[in-house]
Design a protein around this nucleic acid. Structure first.
Lengths: 101, 101
DNA sequence: CGTGTAAGGAATTCTGACACG
DNA sequence: CGTGTAAGGAATTCTGACACG
């Protein structure tokens, strides 16, 4: 869903304008595995609107004094929690369904 | 609405890949007033996803043998018709509303 | 750690023109 | 009319490094 939001089509200059971050900062956040732009054949980075949103979020966290590895850790933690929640939810649904039968 | 769809952020090379059109064709369709990309300070064209959609539509019409000025005319005609329809619709709504009072 | 910057090179884009038809 | 192409130049992006802290 939202096919446009996740299409990697924006070059770093535009992303810089959109986010207010310097190109240097954006490249550094990629180096720290916070964002994952694609590349053109020639090697030019291509970002999505999702990446732009994420960068704004990252910028806020950096302002709050968070370090890049903390941001990465926090996101991974969030991912695991979501997976756990989904698994438990599915389990409950299955249980409820079996009781009825 | 759909803020992403209308944001002019895509360079011509990407648009070319997305549409299958050559950069030459894209620039020519701009010259013929079928699309209206914005420009960066340096003069680089910036397109939106809407422009990409429109270009695909244009490409289809060109394949059908339509000429650029015909495509432009057809779109203007469509615009006028929509405006007329909207005006009439608003008139009917107002009329119905006044009858009730 | 996070970011600025100068450096040199490569990829990308731009315009105007010639060509074909 | 619509599109390809070679030409020359300008804007954009890339990497690796040095600097500061």
């Amino acid at each position: 869903m939202s096919s446009y939001k996740n299409k990697k089509v924006i070059t770093i200059g535009i992303v810089s304008e959109l986010t207010g971050l310097s190109e240097r900062q954006i490249r550094y956040y990629e180096e720290r595995k916070l964002i994952f732009p694609e590349r053109s054949k020639g090697g030019t980075r291509k970002f999505s609107f999702s990446d732009v949103e994420r960068l704004v979020d990252i910028a806020n966290k950096m302002e709050d004094g968070m370090q890049t590895f903390e941001i990465r850790k926090a996101e991974q933690r969030q991912l695991r929690e979501n997976e756990l929640r989904d698994r438990m939810l599915r389990g409950q649904i299955n249980a409820a369904f079996n009781i009825r039968k």
